Amino acid sequence: MWVTYGLIVIYCKINTEDGNMIYIVGIGPGNRNYITIEALNTVKNSEVVIGSKRALKNFEINGEVIELTKNLKLELYNFLKEHLKTGNKKNVSILSTGDPCFSGLLKTVLDFDFIKKEDIEVISGISSIQYAASKLKISSEDYRILTLHGKEENLKKLLECVKNKEKVIFLPNNIKRELGYLINNGVSKDITATILENLSYDNEKIVTGPICNLINENYSYLLVCVIN
């Protein structure tokens, strides 16, 4: 099964007693050129492929297509529950943008009460964090890496890191609100950050400047932010 969530190419395999396969495959940062050969082949050979419209268009699909909407988690839960209950032996691929192991669908699937951890195998690919580091020519091991996707509690961790002058790479949830939170909680408005938008796509954009300027721009949801 394939899943669209996050910024990497990953594939998880769930073996069931009925013999069917469920694959969770990330699609990398977004551009087809960054999808692994294994991911492409797995989707091509699956009888059911599930993912967002943006993810689905990057693959050659021979089986049934199920497009996920904003209710991704519920739709995925209901499908997998019914799929396993009926003993369907079709191979299923779930597409996931981003790394399923970081702000991705691995945690989502493992949280389902009918999925066991030992049933899953993961094959990782290129995440947006990795891609961003390569574009900026920085070593990600020198940075604190955080996600704010559904992680409101990490906003305080971000503030703490910046105040402690730690280098940070984070996935924003609402970049304008989050930069405003930093400024409103004592971070200098002149601190420099880099915002990387639509990574690997034709409209990729990288902007560096003081956060007081960056906060006034409009951005898409596909972002990585780096604070040195």
Score class of each variant (00 low, 15 high):
Met1Tyr: 05
Thr4Gln: 03
Tyr5Leu: 15
Gly6Lys: 09
Gly6Arg: 08
Val9Met: 08
Tyr11Asp: 13
Cys12Leu: 12
Lys13Arg: 15
Ile14Glu: 01
Asn15Trp: 11
Thr16Pro: 00
Thr16Ala: 04
Glu17Gln: 08
Asp18His: 14
Asn20Asp: 10
Asn20Thr: 15
Met21Asn: 15
Tyr23His: 15
Ile27Met: 07
Gly30Asn: 11
Gly30His: 07
Arg32Lys: 15
Thr36Ser: 14
Thr36Glu: 00
Thr36Pro: 03
Glu38Gly: 12
Ala39Cys: 08
Leu40Gln: 11
Lys44Trp: 00
Asn45Trp: 01
Ser46Phe: 06
Glu47Ala: 01
Glu47Asp: 14
Val49Met: 04
Gly51Thr: 11
Gly51Asn: 03
Lys53Leu: 02
Leu56Ala: 02
Asn58Met: 06
Asn58Trp: 01
Asn58Thr: 07
Asn58Gly: 02
Phe59Asn: 08
Glu60Thr: 06
Asn62Glu: 14
Asn62Ser: 14
Ile66Ser: 05
Glu67Ala: 14
Leu68Pro: 03
Thr69Gln: 04
Thr69Asn: 06
Asn71Val: 06
Asn71Glu: 10
Leu74Ala: 14
Leu76Thr: 13
Thr86Ile: 10
Asn88Arg: 00
Lys89Ala: 01
Lys89Phe: 00
Lys90Trp: 00
Lys90Pro: 01
Asn91Cys: 02
Asn91Glu: 11
Thr97Pro: 04
Thr97Val: 10
Gly98Leu: 01
Pro100Val: 02
Cys101Val: 12
Leu106Gln: 01
Lys107Asn: 00
Thr108Asp: 01
Phe112Gln: 02
Phe112Asp: 01
Phe114Glu: 05
Ile115Leu: 12
Glu118Gly: 15
Ile120Pro: 01
Glu121Pro: 02
Val122Trp: 03
Val122Tyr: 07
Ile123Gly: 08
Ile123Gln: 12
Ser127Val: 11
Ser128Thr: 06
Tyr131Phe: 15
Ala132Pro: 12
Lys135Gly: 00
Ile138Glu: 03
Ile138Ala: 03
Ser139Thr: 04
Ser140Cys: 03
Ser140Thr: 06
Glu141Gln: 12
Glu141Ile: 08
Tyr143Ala: 13
Arg144Val: 15
Leu146Asn: 00
Leu148Lys: 13
Lys151Trp: 00
Asn154Met: 05
Leu159Val: 06
Cys161Glu: 07
Cys161Ile: 05
Val162His: 08
Val162Phe: 09
Asn164Leu: 14
Lys167Met: 01
Lys167Asn: 06
Ile169Ser: 03
Ile169Glu: 05
Ile169Tyr: 10
Pro172Ile: 13
Pro172Met: 10
Asn173His: 14
Asn174Met: 05
Glu178Pro: 09
Gly180Thr: 02
Tyr181Gly: 07
Tyr181Trp: 07
Gly186Arg: 10
Val187Thr: 13
Lys189Phe: 02
Lys189Trp: 02
Ile195Glu: 05
Ile195Met: 05
Leu196Gln: 09
Leu196Ala: 14
Glu197Gly: 08
Asn198Cys: 04
Leu199Lys: 11
Leu199Ala: 11
Leu199Val: 13
Ser200Val: 06
Tyr201Ile: 05
Tyr201Val: 06
Asp202Trp: 08
Asn203Ser: 15
Lys205Thr: 11
Ile206Ser: 07
Val207Lys: 00
Thr208Ile: 05
Gly209His: 07
Leu214Lys: 02
Tyr219Arg: 09
Ser220Ala: 12
Ser220Val: 14
Tyr221Phe: 12
Tyr221Asp: 12
Cys225Leu: 08
Val226Leu: 11
